[in-house]
Simulated assay, not measured.
Amino acid sequence: MSNSYFQFKQFRIQQDKTAMKVCTDSCILGAYVRVAQAKQILDIGTGTGLLALMVAQRSQAQIDAVEIDKAAAEQATENVADSPFADRIRVHSSSIQAYSVRCRKKYDVVISNPPFFSNHLKRKEFSQNVALHSESLQLSELAIITSYLLEKEGSFIVMLPVHETNLLEAAAEEVNLYPYEKLHILEKYKGRQLRIITSFAFNPQPCVERTLYIKTLEGTYTPDFVSLLQPYYLYM
C-alpha cells in the first residue's frame, strides 16, 4: 500500500490530492451498508469516492456521489473513471445543500461519513477542516436534506462518533427519521469505541444494536471484521 493510493480487489483509490485518506472505519461503513436491492444510492461527502465504489461493487444501483471540495471531487471522478463501475457512478462537485435544490429524484439508500469534531481545535489545512469539522454541513442540515431526498421506504446510513451520533439522532427525529439499527465499532475487545454506524428510516421501530470488534486482544483481526472486509481487502 502506498500513501498516494490504496489498492482494493476490484478498484484502486488514488488519494494524493485529498486531505482525508482511506481509513478502516470508512471501509467498514462501505462494506456494512445493505445495498443489494437498491436502485438509487446517494453518497453525501464522497471524498475520494471510496464509499460510492464500495457499494457499487455489491449492487447494480445508480449512484450519485456529492463532494464539496473541488480537489477531492476531481480525484473521486478519476477513481470512478478508472473503476469497473464508471457507468453507474456520477460525481457531483457541489455542496449537498446546492445539490439538493436541483435534485429531482429520490434515493433508496443515502450514505454518509459526514463532518464531525465540531468542538475540536481546527487544523491548519483548510481541506482537512472541511472534512473533519462541521462548518460546511451542520448535522441538522444533514437530517433535513436527507429527509427530502430519501424514498418513503428508504434507509439513511451514517457513521459518526458517539457524541455526534446523539446530536444527529435528535435532529433526525425532528424530520421523522428514526434509528432502527446501530453498529458500535470498537478497536478491540474491551477497547475504546471508535464510531457508531446508525441506520435511520421514516417508520419508528425497535432499534437493534450490535458490536463489531476490529481486533482481538492479541492484535489479530476478528473473524467478523475479516468476513466483512474480505470482499475488498487484498490481504484477506
Score class of each variant (00 low, 15 high):
125 E>P: 12
115 P>F: 00
187 E>Q: 12
113 N>V: 04
229 L>G: 02
115 P>V: 00
155 S>A: 15
185 I>D: 00
82 D>C: 09
115 P>W: 00
114 P>I: 02
123 R>L: 08
46 T>E: 01
161 P>E: 03
178 Y>W: 04
90 R>K: 12
44 I>T: 00
93 S>F: 12
88 R>Y: 10
34 R>S: 13
64 D>M: 13
123 R>E: 09
81 A>M: 06
118 S>N: 11
89 I>V: 05
152 K>Q: 09
133 H>L: 00
168 L>Q: 02
42 L>I: 05
4 S>D: 13
139 L>Y: 02
163 H>K: 15
120 H>W: 06
157 I>W: 10
77 T>I: 10
36 A>L: 08
89 I>P: 10
124 K>V: 06
109 V>P: 13
70 K>Q: 14
203 N>D: 13
188 K>W: 15
90 R>V: 03
205 Q>Y: 14
70 K>P: 14
192 R>M: 15
97 Q>E: 08
159 M>K: 04
217 L>P: 15
12 R>P: 06
72 A>R: 05
69 D>T: 10
227 S>R: 15
200 F>T: 06
151 E>C: 14
3 N>A: 12
125 E>C: 12
172 A>E: 03
125 E>L: 14
78 E>T: 06
9 K>H: 09
226 V>F: 13
233 Y>G: 03
57 Q>W: 11
189 Y>K: 13
49 G>L: 01
7 Q>G: 02
33 V>T: 09
143 A>T: 03
211 T>E: 05
185 I>H: 02
181 E>M: 15
120 H>S: 10
182 K>E: 12
183 L>I: 05
179 P>M: 06
145 I>V: 07
181 E>I: 14
44 I>E: 04
236 M>C: 15
135 E>W: 04
66 V>Y: 06
208 V>I: 14
104 R>H: 15
68 I>Q: 08
24 T>A: 04
69 D>R: 09
64 D>P: 11
145 I>S: 09
225 F>T: 01
